[in-house]
């Protein structure tokens, strides 16, 4: 029994220590942002790596998500004689929830894992150490541009996700089921508010981009410098980032849409 309590206490302590180090890291990253912004080329390279290269998975997923929403929305709404509102349902679901959340989850899986593995491997192969010995701060040179790139990419990807998703819904509802295109768009237009829906959804994706980038880089930077350590860090990075995104989504939704 005592062992159990001791083990529990130790795990809690270790968890808190990890959290403390993560907070210290994010503060240092934020402090490094101004210096990193002076070298936009490094940020652009990373926006390409984590953002542009994630476009395919975002576009394809959002198209299918939008199409499924169109179908399910129609099946449900048609019973109430409200099939024309399917555009509203698709747009609100995407803009408020699915756009930011699914984008962040896909980002954590596609780009976050590669950030963790890249930074973890750079650490394991002493590249970060050698950079330090060359008087180049790895936090500023390696981590900060990647952090800024995540922060920029996730909101933009979420916008793409929502836009393509709406098109997917349109293809199914109008193209396949035969709902009137005018009703589809005009219902959507009257029901979706720029401030309450689009802006709030955008704010969510900004927060998710911040958190997904932060967790991915923290896990890589803290990875044990072995192949097993890097693989564990990559897995934990994706798991933690996904859970953080879902938890924060609830919190933000509760705060935003009361």
């Amino acid at each position: 029994m005592t062992d159990l309590v001791a083990a529990l206490g130790q795990r809690t302590l270790l968890g808190l220590q990890g959290l403390g180090r993560a907070v210290v890291l994010v503060l240092r990253l934020l402090a490094a942002v101004p210096a990193a912004l002076r070298r936009p080329r490094l940020i652009i390279e990373q926006v390409y790596a984590v953002g542009v290269l994630s476009m395919v998975i975002i576009v394809v997923s959002s198209l299918f998500v939008g199409m499924v929403l169109g179908l399910q929305g129609y099946y449900t709404l048609v019973d109430f004689g409200a099939a024309e509102s399917v555009g509203t349902l698709v747009a609100l679901s995407l803009v408020r929830e699915l756009g930011p959340v699914v984008t962040a989850l896909l980002f954590a899986g596609r780009a976050g894992s590669s950030l963790t593995a890249e930074v973890g491997l750079m650490k394991a192969t002493e590249q970060l150490s050698s950079m330090e010995m060359m008087a180049v701060d790895p936090e500023r040179r390696i981590l900060a541009p990647r952090f800024i790139a995540s922060f920029i990419s996730v909101p933009l990807l979420a916008v793409v996700f929502s836009a393509v998703g709406v098109l997917g819904g349109y293809l199914v509802a109008v193209g396949m089921i035969g709902i009137d295109a005018g009703a589809f768009w005009s219902n959507m237009q009257s029901a979706v508010s720029v401030r309450d829906d689009i802006l709030n959804g955008f704010i969510k994706s900004v927060v998710f981009g911040f958190v997904a980038g932060w967790i991915a880089l923290h896990k890589g930077y803290e990875a044990e410098p072995t192949s097993q350590g890097v693989s564990r860090a990559t897995t934990m990075g994706v798991v933690h980032a996904s859970l953080a995104v879902l938890g924060l989504d609830f919190l933000l939704t509760a705060l935003m849409f009361d």
Binding site: E126, S130, M134, A135
Partner: peptide, 27 residues
Amino acid sequence: LRRRMGMLFQSGALFTDLSVFDNVAFP
């Protein structure tokens, strides 16, 4: 001070995404 020191790591610790030229040009 570190700018006045060079260190050769056991593994070499070259930047794997940069060519030989760019590695040497890095510092």
